[in-house]
Structure formats: C-alpha cells, structure tokens
C-alpha cells in the first residue's frame, strides 16, 4: 500500500480514472434498456468539451501566482454566437473557426493586458473581461441566427468508429500539450514560473511573454469549445458557458494539477472530465433534480480532492 501511496503522490491523475471507473460500475445496474456503450459515447462526447476548455485552464493554473482564467464562460458564449452566425455565411465552417480563434486570441490578449500592463490580479482581471465578453454576446445575440450550418453541425457530431472526431482530435491535442510542457522551452517556462516566478525571471526565462501566450491559448481553447458545443447541440444560448466556469477549474484540479502551479497533467484532465460527466449521467439516470445534481457534483469534487491530496510524511 505504501508503494502505491508513493506512486500516486507523483501520478495523482490516477484517482480521477479510478473514480470514473468506479462510477461506471455503480451505474451498471441502473442501465435498463440503454447499453453501456451508449452511455460511454455520451460521456466521451461531453467529456471532450470539458477537456477542451480544461486544457487551456490547466496551462493558466500551472502558471501559479494566482493565475486563473475566469473569462471562460464569456468567451464560450460569444464564440458560440459569433461562430454559428458566421458558419451560415459565405465563409462557412472555416470562417466560423477563424472567428472563434480570433475571439479567443482577443480575449487572451485582453486578459494579458489587464494582468501584465495594468497589474490587476488575475482573478479580478479575467472575471471582469468575462463580463465584457458576456455583454458582447448578449448584444450580438439580438437578431443573430444561433443555428449552425449543416456542415459545421455534421462535423461536430461526426464519429469515427464510434468515437467522436472531436474526441480524437482532443486526445491528440492533449498529447501535444503534454509534449509541449515537457519538451519545449515554452512549456518548461510555464512550469518554472509556476514554481518560483522570481527564480524563473532571474534565470532569464521570458516569463512575461509566456504568461501572455498562455492566456491567449486559454482563450482559443475556450472559444473553440463554445463553437463546437453550440454546433453539436444545434444552437447557442446565453447561458451555455455558465457551467463551464466551475467545470474548467474542476477538471484541472481533480486531474491532479496543483492549484498552486508548477505542475500540469493533461491525462488527469481527461480522467476528471470523464468522472464529472459520468457522475452527472448517473444522477440523471437516478432522476434527481438539478439542485441535488449540483450539490452532488460539489460533494464529488471536494471528496476527490480530499482523497488525492498527498499526505505529509
């Protein structure tokens, strides 16, 4: 048991997978009529969106020093509306993706300016920019067609051998993020800054531009989440980003990334996303109301954090 303890201290992402597995087992008796395969597919589809937004949030949180991106819901909503309305225009799906990426970059630059130039604490800076983005989305939603073009919708729900294309792309993206963290100067700078920003500066790492890039990446991930989420459910709504604020942070923290920074686990984000989706699914199957569902989600998050926290010797 103690060697297992030691192993999990450095591989804490395993907890989220164990949790997800346990939920699957608990769920089995309740699956009347529905196949486990179907539940699994739905889980993967939604987990994909959690991961998409979670990867960006993970990079931001890994920066440490209180860095966090709370503008995620605003970015998601705005990108959802703008993306869908562009998709039915002349430029089509490509234009929609371009618009979403542009919104993400804009949100990221805005956050970086607020944090680095105006020296506003990240929590306040991103919360306020999130409000601005949400307001833009409200303004834009008047008279906009919030319906995806058939092509965009088809792409966002297309499956390859039963697995959504988006999930495959996201698995590749997670692997890439993992590699970038491990094997590029940018990635090392992110992790170094998260452990000791003073040491990172004195070592001569380009900390400031790295922080800016990370916020831009987080913006892009959130915007693409907004676009494909809206496309896959067939339309954008003003509250579509809401639950992603908590979930984007929850998947990062549940996945074993240290909230204090300097560590990041893309694998863990997947485990945590599956865990959260499955728990919501289970609660749906049990037929509990939305209130209880939120309560249970909160308890699960707290519970998993309690288990995974490494004990002091």
């Amino acid at each position: 048991m103690s060697s297992f303890r030691r192993w999990t201290a450095t591989h804490s992402w395993i907890w989220s997978f164990l949790g997800a597995g346990a939920l699957m087992i608990v769920m089995l008796p309740f699956l009347r009529g529905q196949g486990i395969e179907q539940v699994g597919q739905v889980a993967i589809q939604f987990a994909t969106f959690y991961v998409m937004v979670g990867l960006g949030q993970m990079l931001v949180i890994a920066l440490g020093s209180g860095n966090i991106d709370l503008s995620v819901p605003g970015t998601i909503t705005l990108a959802g509306f703008v993306g869908l309305s562009v998709s039915s225009g002349a430029t089509g799906t490509l234009g929609a993706c371009g618009a979403a990426v542009a919104i993400g970059i804009g949100a990221g630059i805005g956050n970086a300016v607020l944090i680095q130039v105006l020296q506003i604490p990240p929590m306040i800076a991103t919360l306020s920019s999130g409000f601005v983005l949400q307001s833009l989305a409200i303004a834009f939603s008047r008279g906009a067609s919030a319906v995806p073009s058939p092509l965009l919708q088809a792409i966002s729900v297309h499956r390859f051998a039963g697995v959504p294309d988006l999930a495959i792309i996201l698995i590749l993206a997670s692997l890439t993020v993992g590699l970038v963290l491990r094997q590029t100067r940018f990635g090392r700078t992110v992790l170094a800054s998260g452990q000791s920003i003073r040491a990172a500066r004195l070592t001569g790492l380009s900390v400031n531009s790295t922080i800016a890039i990370v916020y831009i990446l987080s913006g892009i991930f959130a915007a693409l989440t907004g676009l494909f989420l809206a496309a896959s459910v067939g339309g954008a709504s003003l509250d579509m980003g809401q639950e992603y604020l908590l979930f984007s942070i929850a998947v990062v923290v549940l996945g074993g990334t240290a909230i204090s920074g300097g560590e990041a686990s893309p694998t863990g984000v997947w485990g945590a996303a599956l865990l959260l989706v499955l728990s919501v699914t289970l609660l749906n199957i049990l037929g509990v109301g939305a209130g209880v569902r939120f309560l249970a989600t909160g308890i699960i998050i707290v519970g998993v954090l309690g288990v995974t926290k490494p004990r002091e010797d």
Binding site: L191, A192, Q195, S196, A199, A200, L202, G262, E263
Partner: peptide
C-alpha cells in the same frame, strides 16, 4: 529557496 530552486523539479 526563494529565488533559486524550482522545488517540484
């Protein structure tokens, strides 16, 4: 500890 070591590494 304050400005040299990256403790998690």
């Amino acid at each position: 500890q304050g400005e040299g070591v990256f403790p998690l590494w």
